[in-house]
Design a protein around this nucleic acid. Structure first.
Lengths: 336, 336
DNA sequence: ATGAAAGCGCTAACAA
DNA sequence: TTGTTAGCGCTTTCAT
């Protein structure tokens, strides 16, 4: 590996001068030397050593991307097709901003902190951590942190998410306008994101629902096996609804198959809607009517937000990305 | 950030002694000092600085994970649900082995090399690079490299893959034994992995096929739109087969929906088989009969292989992971 | 059993 | 315009 010292020797100048040329501080370097040094740099394929840079500048150009793994959660990296897309967009933007991505599956706050400290990571992006975990981590690490898809009452941690309320509202409005009265919203929890979506649905039904329209809600188990049992138990309830609006396409898909196996026609007997517009939504029959989010954009904004935090600049982007209803085949129009 | 120097001062010893205690070189340190230093280390939550370590030891404990992005490829990180699983298993094992994972979407060999050099990455794991790209990269970087799912005639680069031939053979045998005679194998290329699978199918049909059984093959376009058109054009051909064996579950799923939309009953009119046992295989109707691979294991073995290369030890694991036929509903038994 | 000192590659303050 | 030097935090060799 060729070092600045080597270049300097070959050029017959001091390391400082070479360093200056590398960093474009060419005001105090003679034209002749600039050219000569640049040529030698090129020729020898000089690559700066991050270790030395880190030590000297006390910064790493590293951004840590942490994914929390919780057993049985929907947002498990293994089962969620979103994860790879998010990771993709994250790395793309991180690299574009001249940073590097250190990736880790976070098992504990302690571990995450150690990683960040060991590498002097300049900022953290987290996925799949709970609000409390994010807060604790942020306080412990004392470096900028941006979470994705997390909600806080008091908003202590920077977050990039969706216009979930608006998404719930838009779909609720669409369903109401399609003539559905008995709407059931299904999620696996009632905090943050899913809570917002539910509020949106309620508001939409209030404002746009026909005479007698009402929105109900059910919380399903997170665990797959338990959820399966839950669906069995809830069959009659589900069949009695006009439309089932699931908080994710994955759940919608699961339910569609469950119901179809029970002889229920979708959307003939019951309509189904999802949320996310994941690959699952299009790769099933009927194709799922859902709420689309732009995941690439989400990752991009998260990185931009973080960089602003790191450089102590103001973030002018969107913290809540817009969503839109995508009409496919799983919701049918009710005759009036 | 507390440094060794600080610990030393507090303990009233030299940095060297502290360093020795940290690394367990306690042969020449008094019991009293060991305890005292260890306590102070604990109390102050000492974390070694990677930058200093890298500089002093000339190694980084970093493993670069490179994903090649090629437009329109099946193995695009964005669309392939496998990617997140592989990434998951990779990081798990890398961390378990006391390394760290630097993640990058590789746009060019030049870029990959720069990344590796800048960070003094100790080894590289690549996904979705062609044989040539892997070879060139490996030569340019001069560090251990393990590719995933790549085949080479002369085997110049370490690779972790599947027993693809055996997989094709096992499914071919299964199909033949189910009474299918007119078997069509479909892939989007005829090199490496898919070529092996095809060879396996042929062998199986030869050995286990009934009188008059034969296996044919078609190469589909990689591009989604083109493939759609191709399916349209091939409809009659596809309908005339006993069974369609696709080189991936994704393709199988796509074709199932295409055929169902055309009124073809799966598996009533035509049976369909896939390969991978991806999430797609189970989340569709009929559920797809496929060849299962253990992706978590694949990532794990890739890391183990790389670590062996780095430490110049012999690798005693499996370079070709076993596969098994998973029988579901998309293949029916033919009456004799 | 313990410590001093050099060196890893680079930056930046200061001299010349 | 160019060069000298100290220092970033750690390891390691060599004295003591």
């Amino acid at each position: 590996m060729v070092r600045i010292k080597d270049i300097a020797k070959e050029a017959g100048v001091s390391p400082t001068t070479v360093s200056n040329v590398i960093h474009g501080n060419t005001k105090k370097v003679s034209k002749a030397n600039i050219d000569k040094i640049q040529r030698i740099l090129e020729k020898n394929q000089y690559i700066p050593s991050m270790s030395a840079l880190m030590l000297a500048e006390n910064r790493s150009r590293l951004i840590g991307v942490l994914i929390g793994e919780r057993e049985g959660k929907r947002r498990s990296i293994a089962s969620d097709p979103f994860t790879s897309v998010i990771l993709n967009s994250l790395e793309l933007e991180i690299y574009r901003q001249n940073y590097y991505m250190l990736f880790h599956l976070a098992n504990s706050q302690e571990e995450s902190w150690k990683l960040a400290a060991t590498w002097k990571v300049e900022g953290l992006i987290t996925l799949g951590l709970s609000s409390e975990e994010n807060l604790e981590l942020s306080e412990k690490c004392q470096i900028p942190l941006v979470s994705i898809d997390n909600y806080y009452g008091e908003k202590k941690v920077a977050n990039i998410g969706l216009q979930d309320f608006e998404g719930g509202y838009a779909m609720g409005k669409f369903l109401a306008e399609q003539g559905h009265k008995n709407i059931l919203f299904l999620a696996d929890n009632d905090v943050g994101v899913d809570h917002e979506r539910w509020l949106g649905v309620q508001k939409a039904v209030e404002e746009h629902g026909a005479e007698g329209a009402a929105a109900g809600r059910r919380i399903m188990p997170e665990n797959r096996e338990l959820r399966k049992a839950w669906l069995e138990d809830s069959l009659e309830d589900l069949k009695s609804r006009d439309v089932l609006f699931f908080a994710s396409d994955f759940y919608a898909l699961e339910a569609i198959h469950f119901l179809q196996d029970k002889g229920v026609d979708i959307p003939g007997d019951v309509s189904v809607a999802g949320f996310d517009d994941s690959p699952y939504a299009e790769i099933c029959r009927p194709e799922i009517t859902t709420v689309r989010q732009n995941i690439m954009k989400k990752g991009q904004e998260a990185v931009k937000r973080l960089i602003c935090l790191i450089q102590e600049e103001e973030f002018k982007g969107q913290e809540r990305l817009p969503v839109e209803v995508v009409v496919r085949d799983s919701v049918k129009q009710k005759p009036l």
